[in-house]
Design a protein around this nucleic acid. Structure first.
Lengths: 224, 224
DNA sequence: ACCTGAACACCGTTCAAGT
DNA sequence: ACCTGAACACCGTTCAAGT
């Protein structure tokens, strides 16, 4: 077969789509140019014609998956919409756990290109509608964004442990709580004291409580 | 030379120390087993005798650098100590920018081993001393930790751009602000509106404002 | 017990050559 | 313009052999 027919022609979109599938299936180590060329039945040169390098491919995969999570109904109060945005990102990271490390890498490599501006704008738009002084907008947006990524990533990590091991959720939490209780109280007094809270908490609910906490801070600080 | 004399004997500590130096000098791509063996004047086998693999080496380098940042004076109010802790981590990440992505990777890979418990305990201890209900401790601690890592990482990324390029800070901020102002207002209304705030802000001060914001939320929510 | 260094499997990337 | 596939430089890791 010389050139491809139009139906199976390679394109940036098809490559990114395949990359996301490989990442979902096996995490970051699941995506290599070998697995990618195999799945797309082509050679590395063909992929490099559409994509400059692996970093850009990962960035494109991240942008593609985050994009959907940022489109949220605009029918609620700003507070409600921020919660909805948080849940959307929370679930995206839960479905695609590789997003967590990838977002951090992108943020720390090129903070103001690629996907970051869209996330900041999406959150910031609602923050500016909360009715707090303009001087607080940027810091408030940044606090929300970092909390969402961090907490969602941590949840995804827990979820991954749960899926990979055969253990169920209750058992996992019980094991974690017991492990904390056996920590040296001189070195880890706090973890020890909250060990039993971990036993019966709901991840989603706790995540939303954190968003409410920050929103409370934003509005309270804005008022003083 | 057959075996090493006692003075230059290899050890886990010496390997980790060399790894940190390489990471500081050139980021994550600066640390390979070739550069490491070269600096330590040895072969890969010698390193593998002290360290199980590269992942563990990165984890050890992270723990070594974070450890110092977590020891903070215990003479202030909980609120003040949390601010001091934040500044300590902020500066550690500023000095060792590779920490940012590394902490995210560690958190998302094995959330409750390695360095995470120590960070959580260090922050959580002060949170529990704030006088808010115990039910809020864990969420509050998590919000603080994620904000600190995220915001510090973003600052480090900006700082790295500044150091690598020849541009100075004022010029960089002016360029960023101008770029935001030229964004499509339909797609990025928020970034456009805060473009001029970016021109004259202090990173450290803004970082601390964010911590105060979250602490305000914690204590306000605890009161209702 | 601790170290040497050649060898292995695998990775991202390039490029002359084809259509 | 788009694709092929061999080749290159480099990476983490292993292991038989030494002292």
């Amino acid at each position: 077969m010389a050139q491809r027919t139009r139906a199976d022609a390679l394109s940036r979109e098809r490559i990114v789509e395949a990359a996301v599938e490989l990442l979902d299936a096996d995490g970051e180590r699941g995506l290599t140019f070998r697995t990618l060329t195999e799945r797309l039945a082509t050679g590395p040169g063909a992929i490099y014609w559409h994509v400059p390098n692996k970093g850009e491919l990962l960035a494109a995969a991240t942008a593609s998956v985050i994009g959907d999570a940022l489109t949220v109904a605009t029918t609620g109060s700003p507070w409600e919409e921020i919660r909805a945005l948080g849940i959307g990102l929370f679930e995206a990271i839960d479905r695609h756990p590789w997003l967590s490390a990838q977002l951090a890498v992108q943020l720390s490599r090129s903070p103001w290109s690629s996907v970051t501006p869209r996330i900041f704008d999406s959150i910031g738009r609602r923050v500016s509608a909360l009715g707090v002084p303009e001087a607080t907008w940027f810091t408030a947006t940044s606090a929300l964004a970092h909390y969402i990524f961090g907490a969602a990533g941590q949840n995804a990590a827990n979820a991954r442990v749960l899926r990979s091991g055969g253990t169920d959720r209750a058992e996992y939490l019980r094991a974690a709580a017991s492990a904390w209780e056996e920590l040296d109280p001189a070195e880890f007094p706090f973890l020890k004291s909250i060990a039993d809270q971990v036993r019966e908490h709901d991840d989603r609910e706790q995540f939303l409580t954190g968003i409410d906490l920050i929103l409370t801070g934003i509005t309270a600080q804005g008022r003083t």
